[in-house]
């Protein structure tokens, strides 16, 4: 957590500098440089999250891109998850479906997905549930007659078993019956005598 805070602090610091530059460029109301991002659950029934970012009226109408910080593959980089247009009050919201749980850092920046690569504001949120299952491609693969596999295997094994029973049965019958038949023949002959 301590390390997370450090990251947060660093991120906000850089965000502030960005905002200062933008303020100069637009020469807009300087008081409103407290850009924020907030995260909330969409509703009681939905595990999706509403990401909303305020950049003030200066950002009205422009694209706002939302980010999430990944925890995989060494980079811990910012992944753009989508973008939305800011309202006249400079607020943009985006409905995000979380794909993992745990404390997650979200961010937003003014600009389209191709023009910005990292957020100007960040905030952390503890995601408790992620509604995503595995992607469709993981679940689904079809082979023709795939479902028949079990039945096929069983019937094939049964066929093999029948063949073995027939073969060994024939052998066993000969082994058991043959000496008896010989015995009968001997008895017959002795009677004849």
């Amino acid at each position: 957590m301590k390390s997370l805070l450090k990251v947060l602090v660093a991120a906000t610091a850089s965000a502030a500098s960005v905002l200062v530059i933008s303020a100069v460029a637009f020469a807009a109301t300087p008081a409103q440089n407290a850009a924020t991002i907030s995260v909330s659950q969409v509703s009681q029934s939905s595990d999706n999250l509403t990401l909303s970012a305020r950049f003030g009226a200066s950002a009205a109408g422009s694209k706002v891109t939302f980010f999430v910080q990944t925890q995989e593959f060494a980079g811990h980089g910012w992944m753009a998850v989508g973008s939305a247009s800011a309202s006249s009050s400079g607020e943009a919201t985006y409905t995000y479906t979380p794909t993992w749980t745990g404390s997650t850092v979200f961010g937003a920046a003014v600009g389209s997905e191709t023009s910005v690569t990292s957020p100007s504001v960040t905030g952390s949120f503890n995601v408790l549930k992620d509604p995503t299952g595995l992607p469709q491609s993981v679940i689904e693969y079809a082979r023709p007659l795939g479902g028949a596999g079990g039945v096929l295997v069983k019937s094939l094994l049964a066929t093999v078993a029948i063949i073995w029973v027939l073969l060994l049965g024939a052998l066993l019958l000969v082994i058991v019956r043959m000496p008896r038949l010989a015995g009968e023949a001997v008895i017959d002959e002795s009677r004849r005598d």
Partner: peptide
């Protein structure tokens, strides 16, 4: 040879 005698039954 299972006591083979070559009888008809065998």
């Amino acid at each position: 040879s299972l006591k083979w005698l070559g009888t008809e039954k065998q």
